[in-house]
Simulated scan of single mutants.
Amino acid sequence: MPDEPPPAPEPGSAADVIRTWDARADHYLRLFRHELDGKPFDLAALHAFAGRVTEGGTVYDAGCGPCGHVTELLAARGLDVLGIDLSPRCVALAREEKPGCRFAVMDQREIAGARLDGLVSYYSLHDQPKRELPAALAAWAAALRPGGQLLIVAKEGTGDHVIDDPLGSGLRVYWAEFTQDELRAAAGAAAFRVDDCTVREAYEDEIPTRRIHLAATRA
């Protein structure tokens, strides 16, 4: 008998994130290579985050994806930035796109000993079930020094399931959305002080879902 293919990983698991992102990284790079050029609100939020971190401070761009554009922006502001992602393909593409920046294959929930001054999660929470949110925030809190800065950007909503990739990769992907209350509560439970939580409407070329920008300080 021919060998049976290995079972598919559990939807939303780390193995599933790797599988789906390795498969769609090139597609997303084509879509989002110049993403920040058309998002003034996001640019302002990232620059504000950089301004709250001491120059030369150590920062992780958690879930950097294939573009590396957030990592590059923060490095240009004088921060010591490492872009991290579970997907080897995302990291390989980011290194090609931004050869002057640093990237590593790493699980953003396994960074407790990092001793960071800041962490950005730019749409990195959507690939795993919402029940994983407290563990993710706790890991980030353990990695940040007291006074360390956190910026979360997430899509607003109540979705928490597998769907057809809304950006047309042809894959079935895990898709989690969040409310302001959920993000505030998880941040507070993880010893963060929420400094600002702002919602913006989607831009014309985006999925028609509002975006939450949450800025917080490690207490």
Score class of each variant (00 low, 15 high):
208 P>T: 03
49 F>I: 07
63 G>R: 12
175 W>H: 13
56 G>L: 02
87 S>L: 05
34 H>E: 14
72 E>Q: 15
85 D>F: 03
138 A>K: 15
175 W>E: 00
218 R>A: 03
80 D>V: 01
103 F>N: 05
175 W>F: 13
143 A>W: 04
107 D>G: 05
88 P>K: 07
148 G>K: 01
30 R>M: 06
155 K>I: 00
22 D>N: 13
78 G>S: 09
136 A>W: 04
48 A>G: 08
15 A>D: 04
58 T>C: 12
98 K>E: 05
89 R>K: 15
101 C>D: 06
108 Q>P: 11
36 L>Q: 09
10 E>I: 14
159 G>N: 13
168 G>M: 09
149 Q>K: 14
6 P>C: 04
157 G>H: 06
9 P>M: 10
60 Y>Q: 11
39 K>R: 15
116 L>K: 14
49 F>N: 02
96 E>N: 12
72 E>A: 14
185 A>T: 15
17 V>P: 01
164 D>H: 08
203 Y>E: 06
115 R>W: 15
133 L>N: 00
204 E>K: 13
97 E>R: 08
194 V>H: 05
154 A>R: 02
174 Y>E: 03
105 V>F: 02
56 G>C: 08
130 K>G: 12
67 C>G: 15
130 K>I: 03
182 E>T: 01
92 A>D: 08
66 P>N: 03
30 R>G: 12
210 R>L: 02
62 A>G: 13
18 I>C: 09
133 L>C: 02
17 V>W: 09
119 L>K: 11
61 D>F: 11
95 R>F: 03
106 M>K: 15
109 R>Y: 04
109 R>H: 09
60 Y>D: 13
12 G>V: 05
90 C>S: 15
21 W>Y: 15
54 T>H: 03
154 A>C: 00
111 I>R: 04
48 A>C: 01
65 G>D: 02
186 A>M: 00
197 C>E: 06
205 D>V: 04
46 L>C: 00
191 A>F: 08
203 Y>L: 11
207 I>K: 15
69 H>R: 14
76 A>P: 00
176 A>D: 10
94 A>G: 12
213 H>A: 04
69 H>P: 02
1 M>H: 14
203 Y>N: 07
148 G>C: 01
44 A>V: 11
21 W>C: 09
28 Y>I: 04
